[in-house]
Simulated assay, not measured.
Amino acid sequence: MLTGNRPDPGLPKEVMMFARPLHRAVLLIVLVGLSLAAHAYEGPLFDAHLHYNPAHADTVAPDGVGPALAGAGIRRAVILARDDELIEAAMRAAPGGIVPFLDVYRPPADKGGWMHDSDLPERMRARLDAGLETGDWRGIGELHLFAEDRHSPVFEALLVMAHERGLPLMIHGDPAVIDRAYEIEPEAVVLWAHAGTFPHPDLIGDYLGRYPNLHADLSMRSERLTGDGFMPLEWQDLLIAHADRFLVGVDTFSATRWREIDAHAEAIRTWLGHLPGDVAARIAFGNAERLFGGGDL
């Protein structure tokens, strides 16, 4: 007989020769069965992290944004935009489908120096006050900020401005930046881009436990979530335990990402399929719908 996973030493040598390969074959069958059982999520997506700027318009014209999203099964999307006219045109062509976030950068180079631009808060205040022809701005970001600059007065001003207006702030930053944000404004709604710069499940879970208004998008994390075809158990545990705090995103930071949006959305659907159905639905669209409202998915 077999004891545990090892062949009984008392078995004949011929039986022992087959025992270990047989164990491997059974394990393989089980793993294949688990893989087949994980069907890709088929419901709608609410993408919480897309960029659409002049550099992307040659690839996807404003009137093509809506069809591109629909083709990827994305019903609604947060789009981070620095060009008011461009996002206006996209919103007119896809009514109700776009949640506009005010991108603070003018040229892309601002990514590294915006936190030292003392005139930035006033410019952002003016743009928020002016709004858009098609509605109001619904959030601010994405702010790239790392630990050494977390005490920037410009960052503090933008965070306070966002909170006072009831707007989420998207931060691409270190854990220390998140701590600083909640020192400044304990009730702020923060979207942590890419689940942070150190996407370790234990660390993310710790921060979600500390700050009830912190949410995290999982853009650029599909490889971690199903890198070998299976979602690691620590990620499964994290997403199930905090099913109301995660959102999905493709992050179209380049024209190439816009061209490949279908494939990136499909990768998201694949890892969502490894979660319980109710959890997958919340992460796929329910949490973003609750945060941003305005649309029946």
Score class of each variant (00 low, 15 high):
Leu128Asp: 01
Leu191Pro: 09
Asp136Phe: 08
Leu203Glu: 05
Leu158Ala: 09
Ala147Gln: 11
Pro201Asn: 07
Val189Phe: 12
Thr197Ser: 15
Leu214Ala: 06
Ile204Asp: 01
Lys111Glu: 15
Glu133Trp: 06
His163Tyr: 02
Tyr182Trp: 01
Asp136Ile: 05
His151Asn: 14
Leu225Glu: 02
Arg165Cys: 01
His172Leu: 08
Ile140Glu: 07
Gly131Pro: 05
Asp129Gly: 10
Pro199Thr: 04
Ile184Ala: 03
Ser118Trp: 11
Ser219Ile: 06
Glu185Asp: 08
Lys111Asn: 13
Pro186Asp: 00
Val189Lys: 15
Leu167Asp: 02
Gly112Val: 03
Asp129Thr: 15
Ala216Met: 03
Leu145Gly: 01
Glu156Gly: 05
Glu122Asp: 15
Glu148Gly: 06
His144Ile: 12
Leu218Arg: 04
Leu203Ser: 01
Arg138Trp: 00
Glu223Thr: 13
Ala195Asn: 02
Arg150Gln: 14
Thr197Asp: 15
Leu120Asp: 00
Ala126Trp: 06
Pro212Lys: 03
Trp137Arg: 04
Asp217Asn: 05
Val177Pro: 06
Leu167Asn: 00
Leu214Glu: 03
Tyr182Asp: 03
His200Ala: 13
Asp174Ala: 01
Ala216Glu: 00
Tyr182Leu: 04
His200Cys: 07
Val190His: 10
Trp114Asp: 00
Ile171Asp: 00
Leu225Gly: 03
Glu187Thr: 14
Glu185Phe: 00
His144Trp: 13
Tyr182Pro: 02
Ser222Gly: 01
Val160Gln: 12
Gly139Gln: 00
Lys111Ala: 15
Ile184Cys: 07
Glu187Cys: 09
Arg125Phe: 10
Leu158Ile: 02
Ile204Gln: 09
Leu132Val: 11
Tyr211Asn: 13
Asp174Arg: 04
Thr134Ile: 03
Gly209Lys: 10
Ile204Glu: 07
Gly139Asn: 01
Arg138Ile: 00
His151Ala: 14
His144Glu: 13
Asn213Leu: 02
Met115Lys: 12
Leu132Glu: 12
Arg180Trp: 11
Met124Gln: 12
Pro175Asp: 04
Phe198Pro: 04
Glu122Phe: 11
His151Asp: 15
Pro199Gly: 02
Ile171Cys: 03
Lys111His: 11
Glu156Ser: 10
Gly196Gln: 00
Gly205Glu: 08
Leu158Cys: 08
Val160Tyr: 00
Ile204Asn: 06
Leu128Thr: 03
Pro201Tyr: 10
Leu158Lys: 09
Ala147Val: 01
Arg123Trp: 06
Arg138Cys: 02
Glu164Pro: 03
His163Gln: 12
Val177Glu: 04
Leu218Asp: 05
